[in-house]
């Protein structure tokens, strides 16, 4: 039995404005799918505030829509809904790849993209592809009369394990993903012995626009090798716009190996994680570059 701590009230508003007002009053624990919060509260990792705020009934937080050149994915979108969306599968395929390797169907049906982002695990499965896609996080708050929103690049939003730039009175409302340009290819790799249902030892995503034997607008991102998912800028620089042959790929893989600073834990040692970063960068980059 978890310690319910200070939990006194429960609310499940249907309107965003109402939820934001409740948040403004302070000390709320937000729940959507519950897949992270429930085990965290059982293990004592998370303690409840005085209000349990269930945002799952707020229609404004759902839906996947193309708004101009941006795909807006509502924070409540379940991982299963990502997988089922033709827009995600066709235009943001690296995100669909990661969604397919996310836990199990039962968890995918409950877990939301907003929860995965706000939980800010270094190994969060959707974070690496979202970084490769230059995603941004949309936050809303009620200040005075109206609703104010702000948008932050995902990379900036994530500040550490379980830590983000979300202010206590803010609610994450959506992920905004610019539509990748024509010719964009990207792949996701998650290390583990299972197809899914695994916390990644490392994950990586590589994307770029293919022009002949070159990749442009290159993104190389890693999960579980730093306090937050990161971009490997040195590796990116070695790839950007260059003709990719075996030697160039090897150089980029070595650079990635050298720039990550993973930790050792019960899942893997730092040394092994770095080895994986090199070896799988080599393999995935070859896939992205040569198909």
């Amino acid at each position: 039995m978890p310690d319910a701590g200070a939990l006194e009230r429960y609310a499940a508003p249907r309107a965003l404005a109402e939820a934001l007002e409740l948040l403004r009053d302070g000390d709320a624990t937000i729940v959507a799918g519950g897949t992270d919060l429930m085990p965290q509260s059982h293990s004592g990792k998370a303690r409840f505030g005085s209000l349990l705020l269930n945002i799952r009934r707020i229609a404004e937080l759902g839906g996947i829509a193309l708004e101009g050149d941006t795909v807006r994915i509502g924070a409540l979108t379940s991982i299963s809904a990502l997988l089922a969306s033709p827009l995600v599968r066709e235009r943001l395929s690296i995100l669909a790849q990661a969604a397919d390797q996310f836990a199990s169907e039962q968890v995918r049906n409950a877990a939301t993209i907003g929860g995965n982002v706000c939980n800010a695990s270094p190994a969060g499965d959707t974070l690496v592809p979202l970084i490769v896609l230059d995603a941004a996080v949309e936050l809303a708050a009620k200040a005075g009369g109206g609703i104010e929103t702000r948008t932050l690049p995902l990379q900036d939003f994530l500040t550490g394990p379980g830590r983000t730039q979300r202010r206590p009175h803010e609610l994450m409302t959506a992920v905004r993903v610019p539509l990748p340009p024509a010719g964009f290819v990207a792949r996701f790799y998650k290390h583990g012995t299972r197809p899914a249902l695994d916390i990644s030892t490392i994950s990586l995503g590589i994307g770029g626009v293919r022009r002949g034997d070159r990749l442009e607008r290159v993104r190389v991102a890693f999960g579980a090798v730093a306090p937050t998912p990161i971009r490997a800028r040195a590796a990116e620089a070695l790839i950007e716009g260059r003709a990719l042959d075996a030697a160039a790929i090897e150089a980029a893989a070595e650079a990635a190996h050298d720039e990550v600073r993973p930790i050792s834990d019960v899942r893997a040692s730092d040394w092994y994680r770095q080895e994986l970063v090199r070896n799988m960068t080599r393999r995935v980059l070859a896939h992205v570059a040569f198909g």
Partner: peptide, 22 residues
Amino acid sequence: VIEDGRVKNPSFRDYKLVTAPE
């Protein structure tokens, strides 16, 4: 995993049983 007498992975998250796809 036992380190200094302590069990480091007392859950199915980190104690890996074989699953159906494997």
